[in-house]
Amino acid sequence: MIPWVPLARAAIPGTTQQLCLHRRGDLLEFSIQISGYVSELMNSRMHASEDALAELGCAVISGRPAPHVLVGGLGMGFTLAAALKALGPGSRVTVAELVPEVVEWNRGPLGECAAYPLHDPRTHVHVGDVAELLRQGHATYDAVLLDVDNGPEGMTHHGNDWLYSPAGLAAARRSLRPGGVLAVWSATPDERFTRRLRQAGFRVDVHTVRARPGKGARHTIWLAHRTQGAPSGPPRVRPADSRRSR
């Protein structure tokens, strides 16, 4: 078996943990782990549901002439790349990344995996917490795509808990233009979070996605549509033959 070679480490702001970047030999395969955890946070060979997060979210706003999309979490760049692919030349995508080194990794060899989406002129980078942008309270974005943790709880950074709280969801709703969508990725389903989204005034669709095309673990993507009033009725659950993995 080809061994993993450690390349770099980066402190996660506000925690005692680190992100650890590895590469498998000379192959174009990268892995990011959190110090102290055995399992991977993400792997460059398993990104189909990262793609699905952007594809599903951007499909909602596909008819808009100059959409502005916010991506929370750069990771390995796959969600950003998929959003850029789904949007037209007049679009703008702001990506917020808490860890500065992750941005530099994506500008270096890691960027080749997603075809260097940071080089796209439509991309704007915010080095800092995505919550800083959501707290501004302006209806700025047509879509907000959140992939900052392993689901609606803070694992890499406990400050992420705010994003999934009633206050955080209210801020996300205020940040969306009318008819906009909040898309959230999770490793597991969470009925409590579905109810919380509805209580925040969103109309909710729940998609089941696969870790790899047609196979692998099943993950969850919420599409929370901004409406003028609180919706009624249960959320719609839709399987997708989309994907994802960490």
Rank of each mutant, 00 (worst) to 15 (best):
M1G: 15
P3M: 12
W4K: 06
V5E: 12
V5M: 09
P6V: 08
P6T: 07
P6F: 06
A8C: 01
A10C: 06
A11Y: 00
L19D: 02
L21G: 02
H22G: 02
H22S: 13
G25W: 01
F30I: 02
I32V: 15
E40T: 06
S44H: 03
M46E: 09
A48P: 01
A48F: 07
A48N: 11
S49I: 00
E50P: 00
E50D: 10
D51E: 15
D51M: 11
C58A: 05
R64S: 08
P65Y: 04
A66Q: 15
L70P: 09
V71M: 14
L74M: 11
L74I: 06
T79F: 04
K85L: 10
L87K: 05
L87M: 09
L87P: 12
G88L: 14
P89Y: 07
S91F: 12
S91K: 01
V93E: 11
T94Y: 12
E97Q: 10
P100L: 12
V102Y: 11
V103Y: 11
E112A: 14
C113K: 07
L118S: 05
R122N: 06
R122C: 11
H124Y: 03
V127S: 10
A131N: 07
L134D: 07
G137K: 03
A139H: 14
Y141V: 00
D142Q: 06
A143H: 06
V144R: 02
L145H: 08
L145W: 12
L146Y: 03
L146M: 15
V148T: 13
D149I: 05
N150G: 01
H158G: 07
S165C: 06
P166S: 10
A172Q: 14
A172I: 12
R173T: 14
R174P: 06
R177L: 14
G180W: 08
A183N: 04
W185V: 05
T188L: 09
T194E: 12
A200D: 04
V209Y: 02
A211L: 09
G216A: 13
A217N: 09
A217M: 11
H225N: 02
R226Y: 10
T227E: 15
P234K: 00
R236L: 13
R238L: 15
D241M: 10
S242L: 15
